[in-house]
């Protein structure tokens, strides 16, 4: 019990930062997968580079949007 109380004393600040940390987790993994797979696909099929690049960017834009939603949620809720 004193453990929790001590922790309560030690940690201060806004819990929203932890929330954004969690919200950035998924998009981070997603961006990594998108670009990793995209480069792999380009290496395997160099003649399809343009198609792959385009789709890579679109996927990146959609995933990045999630991270930005996580970023603005505290502003919406305040």
């Amino acid at each position: 019990m004193s453990f929790i109380l001590a922790a309560e004393n030690a940690v201060s600040g806004n819990i929203g930062t932890v929330g954004y940390g969690l919200a950035a987790l998924g998009p981070g993994i997603g961006v990594g997968i998108i670009f990793g797979m995209g480069v792999q696909a380009m290496a395997r099929q160099p003649e399809l580079v343009n198609v792959i690049r385009t789709n890579m960017l679109l996927g990146f834009a959609v995933v990045e949007a999630l991270a930005l939603i996580g970023f603005v949620v505290p502003f919406v809720h305040s």
Binding site: T54, L57, L58, A61, V62, A65, L68, I69
Partner: peptide
């Protein structure tokens, strides 16, 4: 705004 921005990205490069 996010939706439109993604659409703009699609229009510009997609």
């Amino acid at each position: 705004g996010l939706g439109l921005a993604i659409y703009l990205v699609y229009l510009r490069i997609g």
